[in-house]
């Protein structure tokens, strides 16, 4: 892809507006069409375009595994955490009325946080899935150079267990 300078430049130009649009969709979802699901997907599209043009190795530098994998869980936990917060503040699970003094403000805050959680999970899952497909058989050298990632040790022991099974 080193030769396609038009594609490379226009991708660099397109990425910020796509991300900005995703954020607009995320936080304007209360007033117009949009919300966490769409915003997460659009935010992921920015990364997918980047991967298509610059390849999975550079994409993993932009969205490293240690960011995308935990983010998948962070969104769900944020969502569930809002539910726990309402429970602790004396309401029912996911009853946002108790989050602020005024039920309307509480609802607004609750919906904002919950949609943010949805958006984070959808973004992280879509980027991870796409990079898993793209990096699957390719020469994803960056992986070999990255032994210090938090996941290296765990998977190393996993591989040990598998090889023991085979032997």
């Amino acid at each position: 892809m080193r030769l396609y300078s038009v594609l490379r430049t226009s991708t660099k130009l397109l990425m910020p507006p796509i991300m900005l649009f995703a954020l607009y969709v995320q936080f304007h979802g209360d007033y117009g069409p949009g919300g966490g699901f769409q915003a997460g997907v659009i935010f992921a599209v920015a990364f997918i375009v980047f991967t298509l043009i610059f390849g999975p190795v550079r994409a993993r530098q932009v969205a490293p595994r240690w960011v995308t994998t935990p983010m998948c869980a962070v969104g769900v936990l944020l969502y569930a955490g809002v539910g726990l917060a309402t429970l602790l503040m004396g309401g029912e699970y996911l009853n946002y009325n108790v989050l602020a003094h005024d039920p309307h403000h509480g609802q607004h805050l609750g919906i904002l946080l919950v949609e943010l959680g949805v958006g984070i999970t959808v973004w992280a899952v879509m980027v991870s899935i796409f990079l898993a497909f793209v990096g699957h058989d390719g020469d994803d050298e960056e992986e070999d150079d990255d032994p210090a990632s938090a996941w290296g040790c765990d998977e190393g022991t996993l591989i040990d267990a598998r090889e023991d099974d085979r032997a």
Partner: peptide, 20 residues
Amino acid sequence: ILTAIVVGVATTALGLALVV
């Protein structure tokens, strides 16, 4: 349907991974 679409693409991806 809004939620079903996004869940649908996630499960499709799982099916495609199985295909691979």
